[in-house]
């Protein structure tokens, strides 16, 4: 089998977030992902890059898409992939989080892919293990591979990120996808707007260097990209919006509101989307505009690139330990 298509090195042991990554480092990850997109479209998809390595998907929060995407990415790179889903009810206590980390660490995995319902939990876990850790989503904090796959989708469609006007709409308050995207897109020189009701925008969100809107049409005016967020009712403590009906009326993406954006503006959603809540079904299924399925495809490539690049670093770590 051919050599891995990627050669650049990634200078971090873990991928815990977009925060702290330079534009060059983000570009390394995106370029590496690009190469894997082509590979994934061939009939023969298997590479040797992680042969003999162990990847553990440790999910404290239920997930089908992200976990499957990481699993496929690991397997296509010939890693041994183990999935561990730890029910939220049994592991809500962090002592179990630390215990689990220590136990898994003793089994010498090379990469741990971790999702957890609490902000900062993946960072805490990363301090207790010797292997590389990829954050697959922690609370409302970060979800770096989602932001990378969103960026890859945009870059492949429009050729660049710099100078584009991108609107992130909806429940920014509870969204780790939004935080990672705000960091990545502003770092790469995009003009970013956030749009949502005041109750669903976090305090001082403008400090990310973004424009804040509370009216969809005003915020979408002239946008290249419309990025919708899932309304995360499961994270809401109390009542942030009066009803789904009213939310859809003011902030749900339909053709009427979309008309304010550029004629060929692309529609994105991290999935799973709540149709009729934040996005109209017709809009979500409009293949001339919606790139939601492409995002899923890019996800596998991005995760292959991340596993590959971080896996190489652990090879060096292992060599040093000898």
């Amino acid at each position: 089998m051919a050599d891995p298509p990627v050669t650049a090195a990634f200078p971090h042991r873990h991928l815990l977030g977009i925060e702290g990554l330079s534009p060059d480092e983000i570009t390394i990850l995106l370029d590496a992902s690009d190469a894997y997109v082509e590979l994934n479209r061939q009939a023969e998809k298997k590479r040797d890059a992680l042969r003999g390595r162990t990847v553990i998907n440790l999910f404290f929060e239920s997930s089908t898409r992200t976990r499957t995407s990481f699993e496929l990415a690991g397997k296509r790179l010939s890693a041994d992939v183990i999935n561990m889903s730890v029910g939220t009810s049994s592991v809500n206590k962090g002592e179990s989080l630390i215990d689990t980390a220590m136990t898994l660490n003793a089994m010498h995995p090379d990469v741990l892919v971790v999702r957890h319902g609490e902000s900062g939990a993946v960072k805490l876990l990363s301090e207790k293990v010797n292997c590389a850790v990829i954050n697959a989503g922690d609370g409302s904090h970060e979800h770096p591979t989602q932001a990378l796959l969103d960026a890859l989708t945009i870059r492949r469609r429009l050729g660049r990120l710099e100078g584009l006007t991108i609107a992130i709409c909806g429940d920014v308050l509870h969204s780790r996808v939004a935080r990672s995207n705000l960091l990545l897109l502003t770092t790469m020189g995009a003009r970013v707007r956030v749009i949502g009701p005041r109750t669903l925008l976090p305090a001082n969100v403008e400090r990310y260097g973004v424009e804040v809107f509370h009216d969809m049409k005003a915020g979408l005016d002239g946008c290249d990209i419309v990025m919708m967020l899932r309304l995360q009712m499961e994270r809401m403590q109390g009542n942030f919006i009066p009803s789904i009906r009213e939310y859809f009326q003011f902030f749900g993406l339909d053709y009427d509101k979309l008309a304010a954006a550029k004629e060929d503006a692309l529609i994105m959603h991290p999935g799973p989307s709540n149709r009729g809540v934040e996005i109209d079904s017709e809009v979500a299924d409009d293949f001339s505009r919606s790139v939601i399925r492409e995002q899923v495809e890019m996800g596998v490539a991005v995760r292959m690139a991340c596993l590959d690049l971080l896996g190489r670093n652990t090879e060096e770590l292992g060599a040093r330990n000898l």
């Binding site: 900062g120 922690d138 904090h141 305090a203 969100v205």
Partner: peptide
């Protein structure tokens, strides 16, 4: 404390 740091850390703020 509610504010930019809580927002960046994804932690619920207390005003």
């Amino acid at each position: 404390n509610e504010g930019e740091i809580a927002t960046r850390l994804g932690l619920p703020g207390l005003p």
